[in-house]
Design a protein around this nucleic acid. Structure first.
Lengths: 112, 112
DNA sequence: TTTTAATACCTAATTTGCTTAGGCATGATG
DNA sequence: CATCATGCCTAAGCAAATTAGGTATTAAAA
């Protein structure tokens, strides 16, 4: 059948979690780290990432600092207070989701 | 931010897993069982389910048996051989996905 | 008794979130 | 000197759900 990404709907959570752990990060760095942490399995493409970052900024969950290092512009993103709250919330939801998925795919349910 | 379903992209796998465990099921029954197994947490709505079942049938992963019980028509779905194969495959993918998600959200990654 | 809830199927417009596929610019590597 | 890595970006298209309906029968509740 189809072969789409299973990570749909979870990318924002992944990004927020990275920011929560690393204080400040820039976009390109995020894509590299996701790839590294997942041993190359998870591809957080720039086409997905940048819209996410812009949305987070628009919603006040991150703030941006511009930096210019040898003619290269970087935009560093950092969680705001509400960004931290949202991250905690999303991670909790994610944990519940993971547990539910395990329940749904592991045991053998009985017919009623 | 948004509050969408985290189960996007996993519903087909859930349906296939149920069929693998229960031999034969009909649509309405599937919605009830998902709800029950997840203690009401996962809502597999009919608007999502029926298109999935029809697609599975179109792709030859399930076969259908019509049954009429006291003026109520039920369509029983049952995995075909390739349906069983696909289920095994998707469940394996799902396991990998769950492991990856745990890696991505649990540990504290270090800056490079 | 009439309306609501449960059973049982269905479709279609819309939204969402990602993929795909580009574009621009700089600096290092082959 | 061309390609790769760094670093930002957007927009068209697609797939999978959500939302919001529809039909019909039977049982329970008001």
């Amino acid at each position: 059948m189809t072969k789409k990404s299973l990570y749909q709907g979870h990318l924002t959570t992944i990004v927020l979690k990275l920011l929560a752990d690393n204080d400040e990060m820039y976009g390109y760095q995020i894509t590299r780290m996701v790839k590294e942490l997942s041993s190359g399995e998870v591809q957080l493409t720039e086409g997905a990432l940048y819209p996410i970052l812009h949305k987070l900024e628009a919603n006040g969950l991150v703030e941006v600092r511009h930096e210019k290092t040898n003619n290269r512009t970087r935009k560093y993103y950092k969680l705001t207070q509400s960004g931290h709250h949202e991250t905690t919330h999303l991670l909790k939801e994610m944990q519940d989701f993971l547990k539910q998925m395990e329940v749904l795919i592991s045991p053998i349910p009985k017919l009623k």
